[in-house]
Design a binder for these strands. Structure first.
Lengths: 221, 221
DNA sequence: AATTTTTGAAACAATTTTGATACAAAGAGG
DNA sequence: CCTCTTTGTATCAAAATTGTTTCAAAAATT
């Protein structure tokens, strides 16, 4: 399980992030000032750090100096959208940059991208009794292997990486059928439904992979 | 009003885009080279950027590096349909990709999709023990999920966003049934009442969602 | 080249949502 | 109490959306 350190002094925001990241399957540690973050980093390893700029005691930039030699990717979080901040944020070695208020989906997407860039994406995903080995393309339900076709596999990975998130139809087409985005009709066909059907059947997901009428689907834990 | 920056050096194409996007209700700024685009971005905020690849002075890819940390979605426009371009366009952080010549409808559709993905509205609403996650289309009463239909959902969101405010019948029709505004009679039917009834029943809002006789309804805290 | 697997289009079925109609109930005003 | 207006409810058919089956084309494998 990938570990993420959240350094953010506004508790409501921090709580919101922790709640969502935990639900998304990350192990979260929340701290509220730069000093305790620095302490924490001396003894613990993290795969990614979400770092607020404005912090008590040691601010985000200063802490960044401390983090840089550790080679841990950092995503800055800030309320300020000023150019100064942007430049400083990037030159100080941050991987990415988010301006408050942001959407949770957005945050999750960024985290995904950054972790992938650092090759820290977990190769084994799980959902309930389902295990997905993304490196070897092996899917297991309990102890028995289930054979999925490439598209089915991709779709499943998308759902597990985004569990508890409603994935809209067009988003799913974007993610799994990027080649179709460029066709005129964003598929008036039943392709997506068909693959959903196959996943449900093969993995017995009737109750977990829910239809959100007029929206899309959600894998609910 | 959403602001879109168009960076495209072929003036006829740029004009065509500007004309259509303006008509569609966007505020457009057109620039014809990468350098002035970079300047513009230093001092102005945009909700979306349409970016040509082949540009004088600074090309699209270079400009992209500059834009990426700003958290502004970009749709690439290009004459080249080569696979190389496509890969480069997407990995450089663009949200989408259009090949010239393209249909305006197509462009508008893409813009819609991308903007919705970047939507920055408050995503979690609450009223008493009711929680509405607008991003994930999840409604909870206490800890139990309540399933609402799309119209019911929309109506609820309107009420919560306007709690303690009396919403007149015609205003509600405007907000939730915009497609009916242009019908002759502003609904002599019981459509609104029916949905109110359903909301009250599903969420136990008898005492909170009050009827204001001869006016409309109010969600009272 | 032959065979198997995967994919998705088309047609059709099932389900869910929707709102129109008809009528009952409630409120306002005399 | 009576009348008129407005709102609440039940019923049901149309519309919209999703699920399923079938099958041929495309892709992968032998």
């Amino acid at each position: 399980m990938l570990k993420i350190l959240i350094v953010e002094d506004e508790k409501p925001i921090s709580d919101l992030i922790v709640m969502n990241l935990t639900r998304a399957g990350y192990k979260c540690t929340a701290l509220y000032d730069g000093e305790s973050a620095a302490d924490m980093l001396e003894t613990n390893n993290f795969d990614l750090i979400l770092l607020d700029i404005m912090l008590p005691k040691i601010n985000g930039y200063e802490l960044m100096e401390y983090i840089r030699p550790m080679n841990i990717p950092v995503i800055f979080i800030t309320a300020k959208a000023s150019l100064d901040d942007r430049i400083k944020g990037l030159t100080s070695g941050a991987e990415d940059y988010l301006v408050k208020p942001f959407e949770i989906v957005e945050l999750l997407a960024r985290i995904n991208i950054v972790l992938r860039r650092y090759n820290k994406t977990e190769s084994i995903l799980t959902f309930k009794d389902i295990t997905v080995d993304t490196e070897n393309h092996i899917v297991k339900k309990g102890d028995t292997a289930v054979s999925l076709t490439p598209k089915e596999f991709e779709l499943l990975v998308v759902f597990i990486r985004n569990k508890n998130i409603t994935l809209f139809r067009d988003r799913l087409y974007e993610l799994v059928w990027p080649e179709l985005i460029y066709s005129d009709e964003l598929s008036e066909t039943r392709t997506l439904d068909l693959h959903i059907q196959r996943l449900r059947k093969k993995l017995d997901l009737k109750n977990d992979l829910k239809t959100i009428y007029n929206a899309g689907y959600r894998l609910t834990e």
